[in-house]
């Protein structure tokens, strides 16, 4: 199953490659989701080629329509907001437990790092569950910039 998944992934990547490059334009350094392949639980390169904005990342983290990270992860840095979830581990001190390249890999494709059984969504992957609503199909949950912003924010949680 894993193997066919990888093949499908590669095939989708090949088909969409042209489109991705033609769209790239001013974001020529942006890594497309098809190209963001996780190896050994890490992804070294910034998806945007630059450093994320931690302040924006904090907002994306909390926003229910974007990261909605708080739905599952408690985070003392956002103690001012109600209802922190318990489904995933608390993220206090997460910067000390994971390197940036690991955090990026988990965010891009949680399953490739945490295992196929994880409930965590993959925030920068196109191959998700079946029957995705039209409005969201062919789209990643977050874009490259938002992923980098959240990583920059997570790095402040020491």
């Amino acid at each position: 199953m894993k193997k066919s998944f990888v093949i499908a992934f590669a095939a989708a990547g090949a088909v969409l490659l042209g489109a991705t490059y033609s769209q790239a334009g001013s974001h020529s350094k942006t890594v497309s989701p098809e190209m963001a392949m996780i190896k050994d639980g890490v992804f070294e390169k910034s998806l945007t080629g630059g450093v994320g904005d931690a302040e924006k990342g904090k907002k994306t983290f909390a926003n229910r329509k974007l990261g909605n990270c708080l739905a599952c992860h408690a985070n003392k840095d956002l103690a001012n907001l109600p209802f922190h979830g318990e489904v995933g581990p608390p993220l206090d001190g997460v910067a000390g437990r994971y390197e940036e390249k690991q955090l990026r890999a988990i965010m891009i494709n949680s399953k490739a790092v945490l295992g196929e059984a994880t409930i965590m969504p993959s925030f920068y992957r196109l191959e998700n569950g079946v029957r995705t609503l039209k409005k969201f199909s062919g789209k990643t949950i977050l874009n490259a910039e938002q992923v980098e912003d959240v990583i920059a924010y997570l790095k402040t949680l020491k």
């Binding site: 409930i119 969504p121 998700n128 569950g129 079946v130 995705t132």
Partner: peptide, 18 residues
């Protein structure tokens, strides 16, 4: 047990595992 949607979860992910 089938994962659905962009958030990629099955009934079991929430109601059995969590």
């Amino acid at each position: 047990y089938t994962r659905v949607g962009q958030l990629d979860m099955s009934c079991a992910n929430c109601h059995e595992d969590n």
